[in-house]
């Protein structure tokens, strides 16, 4: 079904360009030695998948991917990865030894993926291509409408699970350290001169001599 004319053709070319970049970046993420480079390739992969989503007219998801993953998550990732001084040699020592196990797991995952999201369930035949929307159709608005009506309970449950994760992450970092002095901004602001400075009246010990 490859038509070689018109806007369809352009779309396919754009799709293949971004898909190729995405596959390339994904491969580089797991193959480059430097972890910072790997993280940057992951950013590239996110960007190209956002572009593919834009082609699918899912502009809200595409922009949210850039905003959340590229703009926030990967920045924190890079923050951590840049601070770690990882020596890659020990990490690669057991590579040959673990290779058979790794291959078995990889094949299993691939088989599972094919079984679950293979062409028998998600093939082009089972889903007719959706009508292209008019230009003024707001993807964001449609998504919001569905999320807050039809799927409101799953949406709220997902939100609560995320909240639990946030609370758990914060609790994990809470350690009681009694000997650490902390700054209390409220007390810093409330301090008065009389709390810190004591003015002492003192008689001069001898008469100041006249300098010449």
């Amino acid at each position: 079904m490859l038509s070689l004319r018109g806007p369809f053709m352009t779309q396919q070319v754009v799709f293949y360009i971004f898909a190729a970049i995405m596959v390339f970046a994904g491969t580089m993420v797991i193959s480059v030695r430097n972890p910072v480079h790997a993280a940057l390739f992951l950013v590239l992969a996110f960007f190209s998948s956002a572009a593919v989503w834009l082609l699918l007219e899912a502009e809200f998801l595409a922009i949210a991917l850039v905003l959340v993953y590229v703009g926030a998550v990967m920045v924190l990732f890079l923050f951590v990865v840049m601070m770690l001084d990882i020596n890659m040699a020990p990490l690669r020592e057991g590579f040959i030894r673990y290779l058979p196990v790794g291959i078995v797991i990889a094949v299993l995952v691939a088989v599972q993926l094919v079984l679950v999201v293979g062409s028998s369930y998600f093939g082009l035949e089972s889903f007719p291509a959706p009508e292209p929307r008019p230009a003024e159709y707001s993807n964001t608005e449609a998504l919001g409408n569905v999320l807050y009506t039809t799927y409101v309970y799953p949406f709220e449950i997902a939100a609560v699970i995320l909240l639990v994760a946030i609370v758990a992450a914060i609790v994990l970092t809470m350690r009681r350290r009694p000997h650490v002095k902390r700054q209390r901004p409220d007390r810093q602001v409330a301090v008065r001169r009389s709390d810190r400075v004591r003015l002492v009246g003192m008689a001069p010990e001898k008469k100041p001599s006249v300098r010449r």
Binding site: I63, A64, G71, E136, T140
Partner: peptide
């Protein structure tokens, strides 16, 4: 004149930090 303009702005301003981080590293 896109209808997700505000999101687009927010996404792009958040990407700008990469220049600073990569320059520093």
């Amino acid at each position: 004149d896109i209808n997700a303009g505000l999101l687009y702005i927010l996404a792009l301003t958040s990407v700008g930090v990469y220049g600073v981080i990569i320059a520093g590293w």
